[in-house]
Simulated assay, not measured.
Amino acid sequence: MIARTLRRTPPMVWTALIVSMAMISIAMPAEAQGLPALSLTQPGGENGEVTYSLTLQVLALMTVLTVLPSIVLGMSAFTRIIIVLSILRQALGTQQTPPNQVLVAVALFLSFFVMQPVLTELYDTSLSPYLDGNMPATTALESGSKIVSEYLMGNTRQNDLLMFSELSGEGPYASPEDVPLSVLLPAYITSELKTAFQIGFLLFLPFLVIDMVIASILMALGMMMLSPMLVSLPFKLLLFVLVDGWALTMGSLASSFMGG
C-alpha cells in the first residue's frame, strides 16, 4: 500500500524531496542523524513518565522546507516564465489583469510542461530504482543531481558560468560535469533573468509603437487632455487577440528552453 502511494506521487514532489535529502546529507553527518536534538519528559505512562524526542534529521528537514520553494523554483523554468508574463501584462497596460494569482498559476503549469522530460528522467533513473530497493540513496542522489545539472547547464550562458567560476576561484573546469551546483545555480538564475528581459523587450516593442502612434494622433488633433494609454488599450488588446498572442507567447517560452 505504501509502495503504491509512493509511486503515484507526482515527479515534481519527488524532485523537491530529493533536493531536501541532498541538503540534509550534506549539512549533517550520517552518524548524527539519529542524535536527539530536543527531549521532553512528562509524568505518565507505564514507568511513570513519557518522553518525546526530536532528532536532528527531522529538525534539519523542517529547516529545509522553509527554503524549499525558492530552491525548486530557482532550479526550474518558473523564473523566466513569470518575468516574461509580468512584462507582457505591463506592456498591454491592463494594470492587474490577469491578476497575480493567474500569472503564477500559468507560469507554474507551463513550468511543469517544460520540466516534464527532466522530471520523467529523474523519476525513471533515480527515484524509481531507489524505491524498488535496487539503488542506494547516495547513488540515487548522485544520479539525480547529474540530471538536474545537465538541464541547468543546457540553459546557462557560458559568460555567466565563467563569471561565477572566476568569482569562486575554482575554475576553469575540465568538463561540464565538474561544475558544482554552488557555481551552476547562480549562473543559471542570472542567465534566466537576462533571457527573460530579452524576450520581454521583444514583446514590449509592438505595444510601444501603438502607444507612440496613438499619442501622436491625439497630439495632432489637439486632444492633449485625453490619456494616450486609455485610447491605445483597446487597440493593443485587439492586436493581441488577432495574432493569438497568448498561444504565441506560451509556445515561444516553451521552445526557448533547450533542456525542456
Rank of each mutant, 00 (worst) to 15 (best):
L185M: 13
L184C: 04
P129A: 05
S126H: 05
S128I: 04
V84A: 10
L185D: 09
D124T: 11
L184N: 01
S143Y: 01
A187H: 07
A137D: 04
P99T: 04
L92Q: 08
T94Y: 03
G200I: 07
L162F: 10
G133T: 00
E166G: 14
P99V: 05
A187Y: 05
R157H: 06
G171Y: 06
K146M: 07
S165K: 09
G200P: 03
N134K: 09
F197G: 02
L167A: 15
P186C: 11
G133L: 00
L141Q: 07
P172S: 13
G154A: 14
A196P: 02
P172D: 10
S128N: 13
E150T: 10
G144N: 06
N100S: 09
E166D: 12
L119N: 08
E121G: 14
G93Q: 05
E121V: 02
L127E: 03
S145E: 12
T97W: 13
N100H: 02
P98C: 09
V84N: 05
I87Y: 00
Q90G: 08
L162V: 11
T195Y: 06
T94A: 12
P129K: 03
S175M: 09
Q158V: 08
L119R: 04
S128Q: 14
D124K: 13
Q95R: 10
P172C: 15
L127S: 04
Y123L: 12
V118Y: 00
F112Y: 12
L127Y: 06
S191H: 03
R80K: 14
N100E: 05
Y151N: 03
L193K: 11
Q95V: 07
I82E: 05
L184P: 00
R89Y: 01
G169F: 12
F109Q: 13
T125E: 11
S143I: 05
A174W: 00
L131K: 02
M163E: 15
Y123I: 07
S165D: 07
T97V: 15
D132W: 01
I81H: 06
Q116L: 14
P129I: 02
N134A: 14
G93Y: 03
S145R: 14
L131H: 02
P129V: 04
T120R: 10
V102Q: 04
N159T: 15
N159Y: 09
L85S: 07
T120N: 10
P180W: 06
R89H: 00
N159D: 15
M163N: 15
A187L: 11
E121A: 13
L108N: 13
L85P: 08
S168W: 06
T139F: 07
M115E: 04
N155Q: 07
F164T: 15
